[in-house]
Design a protein around this nucleic acid. Structure first.
Lengths: 252, 252
DNA sequence: GAAAAGTTTCCGGCATCACCGGACACACCC
DNA sequence: GGGTGTGTCCGGTGATGCCGGAAACTTTTC
């Protein structure tokens, strides 16, 4: 079921951490029930994590400590593309009124590392660090288009072309054509391929070594993002911002 | 040097994670040099963390993954006091032009879990999750004042009354008097006790069970925070905001 | 208010596995 | 092609993570 790793106990520890984070706190018994492990083992890990400071007790439950927030925030601040893109994100959100976000690739998946909400933005659940399949939305496709072919192939092998809506691209050849289209136009579109009723548009950010570093995207409901904005206005905005970010990032 | 824990390997793993986060990426050799551990051991941990997805490779170095950002962010969003306070933080930052922040206590230390920068705010290094000694600044003192006496005592035993500037309170009796003063006035002041040239003001946030949950604070340079603002205007603002947060939080 | 049901915490023995020394592969640079 | 720097791999061994079981401690129930 779970492959062998040099340090197996780490799997258990992080399973505990993830479970606690997911549920907004949990006690030892709740964890035991959720995890198919003996109570005493779970307890050993909880005690250790607590002593090391990565868990705190609030009320009756254990919660993860702010160390995770701290490390995540520091890591993000240190990321070149984040530094270069945060102003543009704000501007995109302000100009479009929708959600603007910055996405990078990690372990073959698309991760949103920053978001800005425009005034009209739907209160949808976009939070920092959210992970998506690469092929299901514009930000991921914009990145895929500029990765090596065999890298793309590896990613598909690993995570599959999961179907999220009836518009999701689930065929390898079709995806290859789509990526080719993206390279020609320099932006990516997602027409309800990930969530019904939602569209996204994304432009890649590429560094001076021609390596893809991430993508900028706008995300909103189909009824507000009409065809004109979807195919003309927003792609223009994003490509302009993408260029600015590239310049800032490569400036150094 | 390091006490026995049920799962000792976790200490090594988190030491690696913290080191990588601190330095904005590191390779196996760099980690080995920084950690007084054999290369092979470090490698075992790095491989495991990588396989589990908590490390990523960017360029030549390992970095921590966005999972930390995700878990930290989710955890914060789930925190009652954060939900209740975030609007007030923005307002405080806007009205004062300085840094406004929300602080909670974890493991006997003060942790800033949210900050807002006003237009005038000094570009000083305040980031999410930063940890401070409780007694050195207003946010921590505002919390200490409403903890049980023996809890305060435990905290001092554990972390000591470290001197940060010549104004830092380093005497237990003096601190007790200060906390008494805070309880009488319902706000806390820090007059260059943590950083020379910087002042902070904080008001506590207390829940319906009379338990302290955190504090709101304003932070800025002494030359802009004159005595009038320091002792009159900002305390008033903070206490007003503190009340609003308490109401929102206890509303449920 | 005693018993029941649920927590968390603790203990100790056994088989495992995390640890480490050392070797290998692969760069890059004079 | 020797030197110096990486990252990677392997195998033996003693420490240690795992787990069953049971104690301590709360809360619930009647």
């Amino acid at each position: 079921m779970s492959r062998d790793l040099p340090i197996n106990s780490l799997r258990t520890s992080f399973e505990i951490i993830e479970t606690i984070a997911d549920r907004d706190g949990a006690g030892v018994s709740e964890l035991t029930a959720a995890m198919d492990r003996p109570k005493s083992t779970v307890y050993d890990h909880v005690v250790t994590l607590y002593e090391l400071g990565y868990l705190v007790q609030r009320g009756e439950k254990y919660h993860i400590s702010s160390d995770f927030l701290r490390m995540g925030d520091i890591n993000r601040r240190n990321t070149e593309i984040y530094q270069a893109a945060s102003d543009e994100l704000e501007r995109l959100a302000a100009e479009t009124g929708e959600h603007a976000s910055l996405t990078v690739e990690e372990h073959g998946k698309a991760v949103i590392i920053a978001t800005e909400e425009g005034t009209e933005a739907i209160p949808v659940n976009i939070y920092n660090g959210i992970v998506m399949h690469m092929h299901t939305a514009a930000p991921g496709k914009a990145i895929l288009a500029y990765l090596d072919d065999d890298r793309v192939s590896d990613i598909i092998d690993k995570h599959g072309l999961v179907e999220r809506t009836e518009n999701t691209i689930t065929d390898r050849d079709e995806l290859a054509d789509e990526l080719e289209w993206i390279r020609e136009h320099n932006y990516a579109l997602d027409d309800e391929e990930r969530l019904t009723g939602m569209r996204s548009i994304a432009a890649p950010v590429i560094d001076r070594k021609e390596r893809i570093r991430g993508s900028l995207a706008i995300y909103g409901p189909t009824n507000r993002i009409d065809d004109e904005r979807f195919r003309e206005e927003f792609p223009e905005l994003l490509m302009r911002s993408g260029n600015i970010v590239e310049v800032l990032m490569n400036y150094d």
